[in-house]
């Protein structure tokens, strides 16, 4: 009896040791980790979906960490993930806030994890000073604002001659500032178009509706409405519908949300630029994975390939139906062999 007990005890002790030590052993398979800000919007939901599709294709486990707008949670989740995988992972990050990149870099560099960052980082921090930071990538916001403005101007009764009003996003936001710069560039190239007035609507559909309604009361004869994203474009369209000009006067957006494609089909939206977060997610993970496997050496990669801007998919009335069918409603197999296929320019 006593002997039996000893055996059982030893077995249990051994089991405990094994289970305690397990996390310290490296997993055989590299985990694909994406860090996003929340799942309450299609953009980030697609980010996760892209990662899962890639994981399935490569047969690798996927982990989605959502910060819910909380930087501290973001750091804690990341540390826990490193502990769980023993550092055998690659990370693709949309950080909660730009300054968060510094502590994130510290955590990942200490663990020797390769990573790709999107959108936000402090200006003074650059990937070239970190051996494991493969690349920092953003969509070119100025390009988006420019493209959609040009498309909008084309829809005027007399193309490129007329007046517009603009609905801007959150004033302090980098994307909003970049897109507005694109609008300014388009205006400079088209002296026949005049910007009558612009107001901020903080990316919010309701707010955009209210602002547009008031702008239309002040300027009833505009030829087009430029907005800094599709959410606000939807609000502007709703306001236009009440003055029954929707369709005759078009709105431009950007981002590529489902309602925007419907609106292009309906003829109320002139164009949008789709930021394919599925591609974004897969591109970042693929690059980090390549670095980990030795197929991509960050130290020899030129600077313009370590911090750069890419373009999104431009959608207007000409291509909307095929785009929705072939790209938006299905998970495309992206060609990820050329990491720089969508490269527009080096990020400053």
């Amino acid at each position: 009896m006593k002997f039996k007990k000893t055996i059982v005890g030893l077995a249990m002790g051994l089991g405990l040791c094994v289970s305690l030590l397990t996390p310290a052993f490296a997993d055989d398979e590299t985990t694909l980790v994406v860090m996003i800000r929340g799942l309450d919007n299609p953009y980030h939901a697609n980010y996760a979906a892209g990662a899962h599709a890639l994981g399935e294709r490569l047969g690798l486990p996927v982990s989605v960490l959502s910060s819910e707008g909380n930087s501290q949670k973001q750091f804690a989740d990341l540390r826990a993930q490193i502990a769980r995988t023993g550092g055998n992972m690659v990370v693709n990050i949309d950080p909660n806030e730009g300054p968060d990149v510094v502590p994130i870099a510290k955590i990942l560099e200490d663990a020797g994890v390769y990573w790709v960052n999107w959108w936000n980082k402090p200006d003074e921090v650059s990937p070239s000073s970190y051996p494991h930071w493969v690349a920092h990538i953003t969509f070119d916001a100025e390009q988006q604002g420019y493209y959609n403005a040009i498309e909008l101007f084309k829809t005027f009764e007399t193309p490129n001659e007329g007046s517009v009003i603009a609905v801007q996003g959150m004033l302090s936001n980098n994307a909003a500032i970049g897109r507005f710069k694109g609008l300014q560039k388009a205006l400079a190239e088209n002296p026949g178009v005049e910007l009558l007035q612009w107001e901020a609507a903080d990316w919010d559909t309701n707010r955009a509706y209210e602002v547009t309604k008031q702008l239309l009361a002040a300027h009833p004869d505009v030829d087009g409405i430029w907005t800094a994203n599709d959410n606000m474009a939807i609000g502007a369209i709703a306001a236009l519908k009440e003055t029954s000009d929707a369709g005759a006067v078009k709105v431009s957006g950007t981002d590529g949300i489902p309602d925007a494609f419907d609106a292009i089909i309906d003829g109320t939206l002139s164009s949008t630029e789709f930021m394919d977060s599925r591609y974004q997610s897969q591109l970042g993970l693929t690059m980090a994975l390549a670095a980990k496997n030795g197929d991509l050496d960050p130290s020899t990669t030129p600077a313009e390939h370590r911090a750069f801007m890419i373009s999104g998919t431009q959608v207007n009335a000409d291509n909307v139906e095929t785009f929705v069918e072939e790209v938006f409603n299905t998970m495309p197999e992206y060609d990820l062999t050329d990491y720089y296929a969508q490269w527009v320019s080096a990020a400053e």
């Binding site: 309450d40 919007n41 903080d202 919010d204 309701n206 509706y209 959410n231 609000g235 709703a238």
Partner: peptide
């Protein structure tokens, strides 16, 4: 009223109110 005014519903309808 917010939702029907816009003709579309989302969980983000309440933000910033």
């Amino acid at each position: 009223l917010l939702v029907t005014r816009m003709g579309s519903a989302t969980s983000r309808a309440g933000l910033n109110l």
